[in-house]
Amino acid sequence: MTVCNPNFLLMVEGLTVSFDGFRAVDDLSFYVEPNECQVIIGPNGAGKTTVLDLICGRTRATAGSVNFKGLELLDMREDQIVHAGVGRKFQTPSVYEDLTVFENLEISYPRGRNVWGALLFRRDRTVGRRVAEIAEMIFLEDHLDDKAGHLSHGQKQWLETGMLLIQDPELLMLDEPVAGMSIAERRKTAELLHRIIEDRSVIVIEHDMGFVEDIASRVIVLHEGRILSEGPMDRIKDDPRVVEVYLGH
């Protein structure tokens, strides 16, 4: 594996976290290029979500390095990591249920993110236009004034994706973006994801193999906190170890 290629957007090296001696992620290294869609698959408990938690600062790593555009993310707070350009979507849709769809998107708009900025934040035309643009993209243009808590499960997933898009991150991390969706919603989501991954790097965790094949430029198979196999999807599918621990089921 080539190390320190300056063209990589994200370099994860030797990433390790142990919870009470249990190594959930064990000496993990991988690299993400600009505009690449990397998919992480693996059985339950393989450490997939933990990897994303470590990158976005939600969980503190025990050892290793996560380098994003020359910044060491492991030394930064969650909000600073967001400001650097990393966006994270959670597995269960987490939107602000007491706020309207408009307000959810507005809060995510990258302006006025400190106390004074938020106090003096004005809803000007630029914000309105951007929110409308994103709302249309995520199929919620008719729900702008609805409380997010009243949306369906699928709509919440879209809203959360929209909240990330309005941040315009360079690296987007999605945790099971199509989980719990109906077939129709799933198709719409796939279409949406295709559009948003075009001009940015994406790390996706997904179980739906059809979906993975559809979007992945590279696949990493995690097993017990280590990389079992990595490469393009067609090669992964034929790897006997992968079939044994994951695909075979």
Partner: peptide, 9 residues
């Protein structure tokens, strides 16, 4: 928790 990931301290 979510607010942190909308970029707020």
């Amino acid at each position: 928790d979510r607010v942190r990931f909308s970029g707020y301290d």
